[in-house]
Simulated scan of single mutants.
Amino acid sequence: MEFILYLVLILFFTKIAGHLSVRLGQPSVLGKLIVGIILGPAVLGWVESTEFIHYISEIGVLLLMFMAGLETDLKQLQQNWKAAFSVAIAGIVLPFIGAYGVAELFGLTQNSALFMGVLFSATSVSITVQVLKDMDKLNTREGTTILGAAVVDDVLVVILLAVMMSFMGTGEEISLGLLVGKKILFFGIIIVVGWLVVPKFMKLLSMLKVTEPIITVALIVCFAFSYFADLMGMAGIIGAFAAGIAISQTNFKHVVETKIEPIAYSIFVPVFFVSIGLNVSFEGVGAQLGFVLVLTIVAILTKMIGGALGARLTGFNNRSSMSIGAGMISRGEVALIIASTGLQAGLLLPEYFTSVILVVIVTTLVAPPILKLFFKESAKTIINRNDKDFHQSF
């Protein structure tokens, strides 16, 4: 029954920490992430990263991205696809160069340096989604651009990683054509199924004389899309996000949204936030402190500047561009998965694994306050401009 104790500790302390974060003017998610570090092996050691925690957190991040899809304005997303591509590409190129340069500076091998570039090109917006939801900014032009860019980023980074592993002889022979074909096939099937099948499937099964048929069917769609995404070499969160968008186009959107949220936030999402902090360990980091500090600064700045540059090139003003760049900073669970893959393939040296994980966690921790700061400043700029226009009209 030890897992029950873990749940008690996680649920209690995440709520307290989230409340304190809000009182201090920070996003609630920041407190929840810090709780994971405090409760985990890095500090108190009260909660361990068990298989149970892993599975609950996996469901948590899928539900979080599913709800993001439900709340996304599809028309807004379609209108901003150019900006999303621009943000994703610039947000890959700069971090790749930056991380590669840091690895070279500290004497890592050529293969390891290239892998570092790919690793820190990744983006995970699961944390960003929570911050945007808290600020009611998820459905803004900036919010939908961040979400769209994250999808493009995921596809491109997975392809980059596969190409690298193929050329460096660290994995099985990988056909680039097959890899790209699977991505195209994934989006093609998801669009057709989401547009034609999901509405009819929801309507048909909603008539079942059982408890909560609509919510159950929605969860089936969410998890099925996630599994299919994973099967096609994509992150499961992309499938969950697509499932949310598909259901948002049906008449069941409001019912699903209002009933899924309590399920997600009562247990699954808090465990996901804590699970990120549980990966932190300070063992052996002292000898690589310079490497960790330099890589952290470069990882944060290159992703933010790259994303902002991509946004600026597609018509966003300076403040909005920086807000979008800030939304791309977090590497989160996507980078953790890539790091583990690189370790197994011999692209990431074992002695650097802990330091790299720590940098990934730090990028995830700093993303919420930076994101809130820029969105707040952006809102102030709009208000001041409106006030100026109002006074000039008289």
Results as ranks from 00 to 15, higher is better:
L77G: 06
L77R: 00
L77Y: 09
L77C: 11
Q78I: 15
Q78F: 11
Q78G: 14
Q79A: 15
Q79I: 15
Q79R: 15
Q79W: 12
Q79M: 15
Q79G: 11
Q79N: 15
N80I: 05
N80D: 08
N80L: 08
N80R: 14
N80W: 09
W81V: 15
W81D: 13
W81P: 06
W81I: 15
W81G: 05
K82I: 14
K82F: 13
K82R: 15
K82Y: 13
K82W: 08
K82Q: 15
K82H: 14
A83L: 09
A83N: 07
A83C: 10
A83G: 14
A83T: 13
A84C: 10
A84D: 13
F85S: 13
F85T: 05
F85R: 06
F85E: 07
F85C: 10
S86Y: 09
S86P: 08
S86C: 09
S86M: 08
S86A: 12
V87T: 09
V87K: 06
V87C: 09
A88Y: 05
A88H: 02
A88R: 00
A88D: 02
A88G: 01
A88L: 00
A88C: 04
A88P: 06
I89Y: 01
I89T: 04
A90F: 15
A90E: 02
A90T: 12
G91I: 11
G91T: 05
G91E: 08
G91H: 08
G91Y: 12
G91W: 14
G91Q: 06
G91L: 09
G91A: 10
I92P: 05
I92E: 05
V93M: 03
V93Y: 03
V93A: 08
V93I: 15
L94G: 01
L94E: 02
L94W: 02
L94P: 03
L94D: 02
L94M: 05
P95N: 08
P95M: 06
P95Y: 11
P95L: 06
P95I: 06
P95T: 11
F96A: 04
F96S: 03
F96T: 01
F96I: 00
F96G: 01
F96K: 04
F96V: 03
F96D: 00
F96R: 01
I97K: 03
I97L: 12
I97A: 13
I97M: 02
G98F: 04
G98E: 01
G98R: 04
A99I: 06
A99E: 02
A99C: 12
A99Q: 05
A99D: 01
A99P: 07
A99G: 13
Y100E: 00
Y100P: 01
Y100L: 13
Y100W: 14
Y100V: 07
Y100I: 03
Y100D: 00
G101M: 02
G101I: 00
G101Y: 03
G101R: 05
G101C: 03
G101P: 03
V102R: 07
V102M: 01
V102G: 02
V102W: 02
V102L: 00
V102E: 09
A103D: 07
A103P: 09
A103K: 09
A103S: 13
A103Y: 08
A103C: 04
E104Y: 10
E104T: 14
E104A: 11
E104V: 13
L105F: 10
L105T: 10
L105R: 04
L105C: 04
F106D: 12
F106Y: 15
F106E: 15
F106L: 11
F106A: 11
F106S: 12
